[in-house]
Design a protein around this nucleic acid. Structure first.
Lengths: 369, 369
DNA sequence: GTCTAATCTGAATCACGAA
DNA sequence: CTTCGTGATTCAGATTAGA
């Protein structure tokens, strides 16, 4: 494995290498119809303004790198259309592309994909199990990113390993929403100073699922925004060839080092057993939203004390207000209380524990909560 | 409640009604800057080809209605830009919009929203607990739809009931991924023949969360693609005004019947948990004026550092002077500090947070109007 | 060493009213 | 329009420090 310092001659394919340079120039120098899959994590164009502090006054280390700065939506669109066109030229007729983004850029990317002639197969939601909260309480926690999976054209015979993904999902068809933690801990690459080497390193689990599901062993996977090489690392591990393109020398250096350590897995090791998930948490408010309890309805405890359900899923008793757990604890003078087993509601003259309703919701959610 | 057969005169706002007609014409006839929220479920432009059968050979009842047919992406974009512009004109400056869609149309809608000057606040994923499987095994189960929440412009003061949504999620910040079942069972409206009255009826739980989180009681909510009136039903229940626009007489008829049955929830059920931000401001000096704290009295922080209260409500420590917030920030070397939660005073040997005194004043203010 | 508590951090379009 | 002061606001998980 070596890093090339200039684009390769047309006709040859620089397998398992990182190529230095602008991805549009480099892709334009590669032979057409030669690549099986492209995975792209382009700049998101975040348009951040001032600094942001956590409630404890620490400062959030935001993405303020030059490569994420664009003068306007029009400039971002131009850039997007150019790299998407270059990518489409080098894709084999039955090749496919994945692009990941957030609400800042993904709508522009998706529209440009369609305009360029790609055919969208699915959009996939990466649901983060541990996202950064919204510290100021001004919006919803931005807890997901979106990936678009598209074939080169309508009617193309793209690769889809249906059974492999089904096995990965405990025998159930793989859905379009994937729960995966963000990249932290040992997996997160550090530079010499001990800081994160790249501000937006993606988890290997994400690429694992993408490559397992939409490429075959020996396929060529190209990543035009290679960064620290997650795509290459997972490709190598899974026995796929990779081609990385990266402008920044610092990122290339980290990626080279990373890739040198990766070994291809043997087939038996690729089969993973997934641990059984804990029962999904059901917020009490969902019973109200779903009409299982009416706002204004009265719950009672064992001693006959009553509390009224409010429209936001909080309770009000004669003296207290709060969650089902808080009001229960206050009525009992206890430090805590499991509201699910504490409260009952009335149906047809019968008192029924509200936990019955939670079980009902969990059944509906199946394994996908 | 009556159905109007033509657009209303400019200047008047037809509250709690369903208006017959094309949504662009009708919106253009409404007064500008008059609506608090728009919820839109536009045609998805599904581009379905042949019939689809389940493994048991039964046929899937697909969306093949005329209103979902567009000649091209360009035609769909034209339509989208027009209704988004009409919608933006009638929005109040601090109004907001929600649009729901799937990967077929949502990228075009999102890009058009941004181009029209709307400012995206979040994209929200509706994760279906019970989606239709992919019968052919050719793609991932399409298990979600995407909603975009956007303000009329960057910097606008949109409505966001942070604490109410947090309560609905049992005390945790509401995330951008919502697990809600699709609309089935008794909630799913049927026509005279017993078939579903509308092919894409949305669940009330979805609208419950949207309206609770981003409107206030008495707000005006407009739905330009009203269908069978889910937006109106939830709005009425939650004490919001609705305006529905719908072209198809069959849908209007079903919606009229549905809305006639809906009752507004009673006042106590409608109360939501509110943010401290909404509470009246209490200057620290009032504690001194009212004799809750004596001038000369000493406050201490967690680390035992002291500061003396002066007659004008300012503090003096060994090295700093200023407001409770300024002295706290200086002692911590922090960019800011909430003095109310930072300082404590002593009573009967006990250390008590000064915020208790502010709450006391607020309670008194409440009693006196 | 072992268990517990404190600390740190992640693609973030993150305040607002008075003067 | 800008400037200024008040004061509201976080979840999961990994790592480090302490008992």
């Amino acid at each position: 494995m070596t890093t090339r310092t200039r684009a390769p001659d047309a006709g040859s394919l620089p397998l398992d290498q990182i190529i230095a340079g602008d991805c549009i120039d480099v892709m334009n120098a590669l032979p057409e119809c030669s690549v099986d899959l492209i995975f792209a994590d382009p700049p998101y164009n975040l348009q951040l303004k001032g600094a942001l502090h956590r409630p404890d006054n620490s400062e959030v280390d935001a993405v303020t790198d030059d490569w994420d700065q664009f003068a306007s939506f029009a400039a971002y669109d131009r850039f997007t259309r150019e790299w998407l066109a270059a990518a489409r030229r080098i894709l084999k007729p039955n090749g496919a592309i994945w692009v990941i983004g957030s609400y800042h850029n993904i709508f522009r990317v998706g529209a440009s994909l369609q305009d360029a002639g790609y055919w969208i197969l699915n959009d996939v939601v990466w649901r983060k199990s541990n996202p950064m909260p919204n510290f100021r309480g001004k919006r919803l926690t931005n807890a997901h990113e979106t990936m678009i999976w598209a074939s080169k054209a309508e009617g193309a015979k793209y690769t889809f390993n249906y059974e492999a993904l089904k096995a990965l999902n405990e025998g159930l068809q793989m859905r379009s929403d994937w729960v995966i933690p963000i990249c932290t801990g040992h997996e997160r690459l550090k530079n010499e100073k001990g800081d994160k080497a790249h501000p937006t390193q993606k988890p290997e689990a994400l690429l694992h699922r993408v490559l397992l599901g939409t490429t075959n062993e020996g396929d060529v996977v190209l990543d035009p925004f290679f960064g620290t090489g997650t795509t290459g690392a997972v490709a190598k591990m899974l026995g796929r060839h990779y081609i990385g393109i990266e402008r920044e020398a610092d990122y290339r250096k980290v990626a080279e080092k990373r890739l040198a350590k990766v070994r291809k897995l043997d087939k038996s090791a690729l089969e993973i057993t997934t641990s059984k998930r804990a029962e999904p948490r059901v917020p009490f408010g969902q019973l109200v939203e779903r009409g299982l309890l009416r706002p204004g309805e009265v719950l009672v405890n064992q001693r006959g004390q009553a509390a009224k359900v409010r429209v936001d899923g909080s309770l009000v008793s004669a003296e207290h207000r709060g969650s089902i757990h808080q009001v229960g604890a206050l009525l009992e003078g206890a430090p805590s209380c499991n509201g699910w087993t504490y409260w009952q509601f009335k149906r047809d003259g019968q008192l029924i524990p509200i936990d019955i309703l939670r079980q009902q919701i969990r059944t509906e959610m199946g394994k996908h909560g």
